[in-house]
Design a protein around this nucleic acid. Sequence first.
DNA 1: ACAATTCGTTAGCTGTGCTAATTATTATCG
DNA 2: CGATAATAATTAGCACAGCTAACGAATTGT
Lengths: 154, 154
Amino acid sequence: MTKARASPRPELERAERIADRLHSAAIHLLRRLRKEDTRTGLSAPRLSALSVVVFGGPLTLGALAAAEQVRPPTMTRLVDALERLGLVTRRPDPEDGRQILIEATPKGKAVMMAGRARRVASLARAVARLESKEKETIERAADILERLAARVRE
Amino acid sequence: MTKARASPRPELERAERIADRLHSAAIHLLRRLRKEDTRTGLSAPRLSALSVVVFGGPLTLGALAAAEQVRPPTMTRLVDALERLGLVTRRPDPEDGRQILIEATPKGKAVMMAGRARRVASLARAVARLESKEKETIERAADILERLAARVRE
DNA sequence: ACAATTCGTTAGCTGTGCTAATTATTATCG
DNA sequence: CGATAATAATTAGCACAGCTAACGAATTGT
């Protein structure tokens, strides 16, 4: 705030304009990538949950539900489906009989990697076609967006 | 860049790394913003369809379905719901009896604007807290992301 | 004029999200 | 130690969103 006289409004409006476009861009981007995900034979929520299990090691159902920002009953059914498909296993937690530990099977890891590769590849091809200056911009932007997401409150 | 000797692989890997992080950032961002949307009393698909109707003037059901990348039966039910809520109207196309024209009511416009304002505002508050250099980066990134989304093929 | 196409709807399925209630286990406290 | 409270996962039952297939009404083309 230096010389700007009627400062608050224009600055907020600019932030709103940016916010609006970011929102729209994020929607369009994910809409395209979701189609790639379906080729794993897994829906988006299942693939996403599997991803957490694969990379996040064995974890309890509650922890997985929290990570996926979903209620436990929803996660119970997602895990049911993944277990039927032989992608994860349930096993009792040796230290707490109320909990279960969910872990990825080798098949689960393989499916996950293949799916991720496909999805990322289609976006990566588009990214690779950008000018190198643009590439730098969105590389920095990716970081900023993560921090932004974490800070969006209420 | 420049001095890289084994060029093709590293360049692709870099694109993949960027793609992966963009994907993740977009997911997290939208996950947060979706919560804001629910405060309109409308689900995300309904709000999104309403947005197209409000800003895209009267349009046919087929056109709306295409815009939302959804099949006609799905759109029929979304429009049913929006119509029951008094947010849009159906009226026959005077030039083609097979088609209908969907238009936003004043109430629909008001709800849309209020919802958009809330959603954008929460993101805008986070954006406004960024350093001005970061703001510039994501402003440029928003454009690039849109073009990126349009170019993701296959 | 009649056959083919197009548009929207209906019917019926799968999947994902929720809350409320149940069951089993662990923690707490008197 | 034992009764009670709290916690973890599940089950039951609801709403909504996506799909394909099938259908009726209207338009287009020959």
